[in-house]
Design a protein around this nucleic acid. Structure first.
Lengths: 232, 232
DNA sequence: CGACGATTTGAATAGGATCAATGGGAGTGG
DNA sequence: CCACTCCCATTGATCCTATTCAAATCGTCG
């Protein structure tokens, strides 16, 4: 790994409180690589050889069964994926592919587990990250089980709006096809859901969405911090 | 806590490798209580005061939003719940209530976090437990996103059948109403799903289910170890 | 300009939910 | 022991949501 990248990695929440020597050992074993877009990084069912940390770009997590496929989540900087599989030394439950040119840190599983045992601060950071992943997944599951498609879309729009500064409009961060899959619906249905939201002040132009009647959209969406807030 | 219960707790995977003194400290702060059936233990949104460990009985995890409610999971001995909330010192994302008379260990959150920092073996056990919870939730989510209601039921029956010794029949472990909610459908729809499975050798009599044509049921269900196997 | 992929729209269908009514134990009290 | 009640489960009918298939449209890129 190039030494110029080290400070960037070191500053990540996950590694910040590690001891210097443990960090060095871990990084000696790690690779920092840039991948082109649409590249398959891992496949569900494969043994967890590496922990992945997204430094730049974006990665899509997806899952397949029967003939179907669904987007399980998106990972943006700075996020990890498949931490649980690495810690358990198990197989991946999800596949991952880049959806942009992405700079990604690969740390061999064994070294992650070593560092976990050796470095208490790292262990704590790992647990916080894992707990966040778990809670994120619980929220996704609640979203899907407790809401209709239109409600899921409305709440997702409100979330993107908030994350982008509540300026009355927002950019869809991914393809509509991807957003549809993320929200558990077909692209056709997403398109119709946008139409359903038009009377609530939702105007779509490509990836730009304008929200002209936040109040009525919120009444429809009934946002719930225990589902929609990423941080808590 | 009664000292007669201590060995039972000590033998749990989570506490087995803890140091004696750390275990004693933790247990000094803990309560072991027996609750009647249908008692609300925690409510989503409340701060995580305790880590819960189910020693005997059964606990249902559920979530609410808008007017809707859904069963998120069942916890049987020996399982924990809301570990992530405790470690993060955050609010619960799910509510919990007993669905049988249940013996439950309550450990104050603060003491869990203390023990986590002090005892390396405990930290490792916590991480394994948390990783298991995460992977279980991923599997639930895949199940819901990638399968129809009938497929979910078929696979769940195959799983119960396997867990109960593959003897050609199985007992439904919960009310049909609960199973329906767990599988993300209405009780009416569950009843119809059972009818749909009749041609595949599924015969239901109350809580007893007889599987007379495993082969064709498996062809329909297309079980996937990355969704259906609890252990891996 | 032309081709390709993504998105949208329309029509038909399927899957699941809701509402209403009925049947069937388990438990209670006479 | 039996009638009664209550709750769960089932069934039927209908409605609504979402998927599928097909076709049209839009944009982008070469």
């Amino acid at each position: 790994m190039r030494t110029t990248d080290l400070p960037q990695v070191r500053s990540l929440e996950l590694f910040r409180s590690m001891s210097e020597s443990n960090f060095d050992t871990l990084m000696q074993a790690a690779y920092l690589q840039t991948f082109p877009t649409q590249l398959d990084l891992i496949t569900e069912g494969d043994p967890a050889d590496f922990l992945y940390v997204v430094i730049e770009g974006c990665v899509e997590l997806c899952a397949r069964s029967n003939g179907r496929e669904s987007t399980m989540g998106m990972v943006r900087p700075v996020g990890t994926f498949i931490l649980a599989a690495v810690l358990k030394d198990a197989v991946y439950l999800m596949s991952a592919r880049t959806c942009q040119k992405s700079k990604i840190l690969l740390i061999p599983s064994e070294n992650v587990r070593d560092a976990f045992e050796r470095d208490e601060a790292f262990a704590r950071a790992i647990v916080v990250e894992l707990a966040n992943c778990y809670r994120g997944m619980v929220k996704e599951h609640k979203d899907l089980k407790l809401r209709t498609a239109v409600e899921r879309l409305a709440n997702r729009l409100l979330r993107y709006h908030r994350e982008q500064g509540s300026a009355g409009s927002l950019d869809l961060p991914y393809d509509k096809r991807t957003i549809a899959s993320l929200l558990g619906m077909t692209p056709e249905n997403l398109s119709r859901a946008f139409n359903t939201l038009k009377p609530y002040g939702v105007d779509v132009d490509g990836a730009k969405v304008h929200l002209s009647d936040l109040k009525s959209l919120q009444i429809l969406a009934k946002p719930n911090p225990l589902i929609d807030n990423r941080e808590s």
